[in-house]
Each structure stands twice: as structure tokens, then as C-alpha cells.
Design a protein around this nucleic acid. Structure first.
Lengths: 187, 187
DNA sequence: CCCCCCATGTAACATGTTACATGATTGA
DNA sequence: TCAATCATGTAACATGTTACATGGGGGG
């Protein structure tokens, strides 16, 4: 029964933040509220249960810290088991499914790649993103081309935005890879 | 108790499709599965309960149609009450909150605007989108500018994509408005 | 013959939202 | 003094996912 129980997406989002800097639940909530990265809940009814689950699975350890408030704050820090889970999560490359369905999570994972310190993997990750994006671009293009002429105008425009967005993302992936490789020519 | 009970986002997504063309639940599922517009469930456990709720609130009416299958298909068509709900939903302009939190739904609503046949409102809607996007762009830019230098590289890159995406969306909104106005110079 | 498509639906489960509770401290 | 902030948590509710059930018809 020592195996890692499954951790939710919100769980991984929290775990990544904790890995970068030990924090209390309240601080994590504030981060989600105030940063544009946080597409995740921020509501106490979501975060505290998720954190409790991370504790139960031994992914994080708690330490009471001295606040001047009524309730003692719990500072959470990642354990070696937690690091293992987080690393395994980060090391799974996204496919076109992931990219189309939940690009936010794909990007969140990318944001956390600093933790791995593995420039080669960052490159692979960007390759996977670009490839998945190209697949999706082709799928949408085929869909648009197959549309009947009397397709509603507004719907067609929305599809145009979808295409433009994917192209922007592809451009970004290429530039990001170039930037990573120019900054770290030391291998 | 005749008042319209609240309809979920999935409910509106379905209602809009039904408004464009009466369909069975199965057909609606197929649309969500196969079209890139469908960021909505497509799972029977989500769709059928949502459709049942639409029936209960008298937003749609059913008619059995003759399939050669075991279970008779129910063709759903929108009622005048349903049209009223759908119109009210479409006529609420998005603010920057909506745009940042759930742009997909904002776009879905835009896709359905053909139903309104109101070029002026389409313009207003695009104005609202552009304004909200500019707000969000500024918020993210301020956030990026306030970042400490030692901000993780990958996180910073993700923010760059966020900015690029918003800029793409703004460009689209402007072009879409121009396109609408050039196609319908008749007022 | 077996599997997939049609067509609807349910049950168990996971997850998230909203609103509330607690209670000390800080600022207007 | 009155509200807001810190800090955690629970309860009721809405929604969605996965997997399954049913059962006829068509294709290899």
C-alpha cells in the first residue's frame, strides 16, 4: 500500500509550487488568485482537500509555523516521494489529445520544467507540443475545408480564431526552443 | 413556478445547436465529438441529464422519430421559451473576467450569434471582447514587468505565450468586426 | 458469429463552487 | 467599533467522467 495514489491536476499544480518554494495553503491560494498562470480554482473548498490528499499520500510534509493568528499556519514542503511523483508527471510528454483538450495544463507543466534542470527534455517537450499543435492545425483545417458554404458566418469566424491561435502557439514553441538553445549552448 | 430554472453552460451549448437544427441527443454527442468547436463533454453521462433538464424546463420539446433501432430516437426542437432563454444568454456581453476565465464559452456564444440576426449586437459583442482582452493584456503585462529577475525561465516563457495569444485574439476581434461591417453595409 | 453502430440511460465516483464557520489581529 | 485580513476547514450542491446496461440491425 505504499504506492502513490493518484494525484489530481490541481494536486500537481500545487505540488509544483510547493516544490519551488515551501508555502502554506493560504499563500498558494493567493498565488492562484493573483497570477495569470493560475487557471486553477483558488477556492478553499478545492485547495484544502487537495492539500490534505497530498499529505495523506506523503507527497508533502507539514510544519506548523508561528503566525500571530488564531489558527496556526501549516507550511508544506515537498518530500522525496513527492518529488518522484512530480518528476514522473512532468516527464510524460503531451500528445495532440492533451494539447487540444487541456493546453493550460500542458503549459503549466512546461512552466515547472525549471525544476528538472534538463535542457534536453525541455527541447523534447517543445517538440512534442509543436508536433501535437501541427496535428491539431491540420485537423481543424480539414474540418473547415469540409464545411458547407452555408455555414453560419459567426461560427466560421470562431474557427478562424482557433486556427490563428494554434499558429501563434506553433510560432511560440519554435521561438522558445531557439531561445532555450541559445541560452544554454553548454552541453 | 413557471420561471426558467437555470440552464448550465453545457445546456446552452446544446440549446444553441438545437436552435440551429432540431436533433437527437445522439447527433448532438457526435457533433461535440467530431467538431473542434466542441470543448464540451460529449459523454452520455453529461449530455443526457442536461437534455432532460432542458425538457423539464420546457426549453425544448421532443418528438419520437422512427429509427430502425431498439430505442426510439427523440428529436429535440427548441420552444419559444427556450428561444427566450437562449437569446437572453446570448445578449449578455462578456467582461474581462469571463474572457480570462472561460474564453471558450465567450467564443461559443459568438458562434451562435447568427441566430440573432443583429449585426449591431455582433459589433457590440466584438467590442466587449476586445476591451476585455485589452484589460487582460495590461494585467498580464503589469504582472510580467513586476516579476523578479530570478523568475524561472520556463514560467516566463509561458507568460510570453499568454501575451502572444491575447494579442492574436485582439487582432482577430478587430478583423472580425471589419469583416462583419464590410459584408453587411446595408442597415 | 461477433463486433460495431445506433440510441438512450444509470450508477459510482471525482472534482469543483458557494457559502458558511471560527477567531485573533490590524487599520480606519 | 467595524470591517478586512490571516488561516483553515466543512457542508450542500452542481457538474462531469468512466464504465456499464439494454437491444436491434448491418457488415466482414
Amino acid at each position: 500500500m505504499t504506492e502513490t495514489q493518484q494525484i489530481s491536476q490541481l494536486g500537481y499544480a500545487l505540488l509544483g509550487l510547493i516544490a519551488m518554494k515551501p508555502s502554506t495553503g493560504y499563500e498558494l491560494r493567493k498565488i492562484f488568485e493573483s497570477s495569470p498562470m493560475g487557471r486553477y480554482s483558488s477556492s478553499p473548498g478545492a485547495i484544502y482537500p487537495a492539500l490534505k490528499k497530498l499529505q495523506q499520500t506523503r507527497a508533502v510534509a507539514t510544519k506548523e509555523i508561528q503566525g500571530k493568528t488564531a489558527r496556526a499556519a501549516q507550511e508544506l514542503s515537498i518530500t522525496s516521494l513527492g518529488k518522484k511523483s512530480l518528476t514522473a508527471w512532468m516527464r510524460t510528454l503531451p500528445d495532440s489529445e492533451d494539447i487540444g483538450r487541456d493546453f493550460d495544463t500542458v503549459l503549466l507543466k512546461f512552466s515547472y520544467l525549471d525544476l528538472l534542470q534538463d535542457a534536453r527534455f525541455s527541447n523534447l517537450y517543445l517538440d512534442a507540443i509543436e508536433e501535437g499543435l501541427r496535428d491539431n492545425l491540420k485537423t481543424v483545417q480539414d474540418f473547415v475545408n469540409a464545411l458547407p458554404k452555408q455555414m453560419p458566418v459567426h461560427g466560421r469566424m470562431s474557427l478562424d480564431l482557433g486556427l490563428a491561435t494554434i499558429r501563434t502557439q506553433i510560432r511560440w514553441a519554435r521561438q522558445a526552443r531557439a531561445q532555450l538553445n541559445s541560452e544554454k549552448p553548454n552541453a
